[in-house]
């Protein structure tokens, strides 16, 4: 058990909880922000949601038990928070409509994108971000965060065999996408 977890288990007062959240932020805030971005694909929204996630973690801290690591626990709160956001009325009615407007093609934008897409790193990242959310989430957690399948199971509650299938399928989708663009 690392120092942070020790603190969570032994300390319960509100000041201590505040300190725990401060430490969680210094350790995991970029990782969480990147996870959130992977779900919502918008920087400003990702930053807002990440703030909410840490506030939520503070409120829920008394529910943390040692069954999971504090990292997977916070990531799980983050993952659930993002999924709630994607299901929310605001997102479905307002944000998706705005996105739809973005699709009305403008010539200059098209050319920009073509130039960018030639870059291999961009190409790969964009391909990941274009995956359906259930694949995107597992790809991010496994290849970017380098979590084990057991840890991803703790974060997403998705069965390990299902996770394996999703990773395999995600790889296929990604290969198709990459060869298509070459």
């Amino acid at each position: 058990m690392d120092e942070l977890e020790q603190l969570v288990v032994t300390e319960e007062s509100r000041d201590d909880r505040e300190e725990i959240i401060a430490q969680l932020m210094s350790e995991y805030s970029d990782g969480i922000l990147h996870l959130v971005y992977t779900y919502v694909k918008n920087r400003a929204t990702a930053e807002d949601l990440t703030q909410e996630i840490f506030i939520k973690s503070y409120e829920k801290l008394s529910q943390f038990n040692q069954q999971s690591s504090i990292k997977t626990w916070v990531y799980r709160i983050a993952s659930n928070h993002c999924k709630d956001y994607l299901k929310s009325w605001h997102y479905r009615k307002i944000v998706l409509n705005e996105k739809f407007l973005d699709y009305i093609p403008s010539k200059s934008k098209h050319i920009d994108e073509e130039i960018i897409a030639k870059d291999e790193e961009n190409c790969l990242s964009n391909a990941v971000m274009a995956l359906p959310v259930k694949y995107r989430e597992v790809v991010f957690l496994h290849y970017y965060e380098e979590l084990s399948l057991a840890e991803i199971n703790k974060v997403t509650t998705v069965n390990i065999n299902t996770l394996k299938t999703r990773l395999k399928r995600a790889k296929e989708l990604l290969k198709d996408k990459m060869t298509e663009e070459v």
Binding site: H34, Y37, D119, E120, E121, N122, L124, S125, N126, V128, M129, V139, Y143, Y144, E146
Partner: peptide
């Protein structure tokens, strides 16, 4: 190369 690619681009 995914991790470094994402680090250098979208993140």
């Amino acid at each position: 190369k995914l991790k470094s690619s994402m680090k250098n681009t979208i993140f």
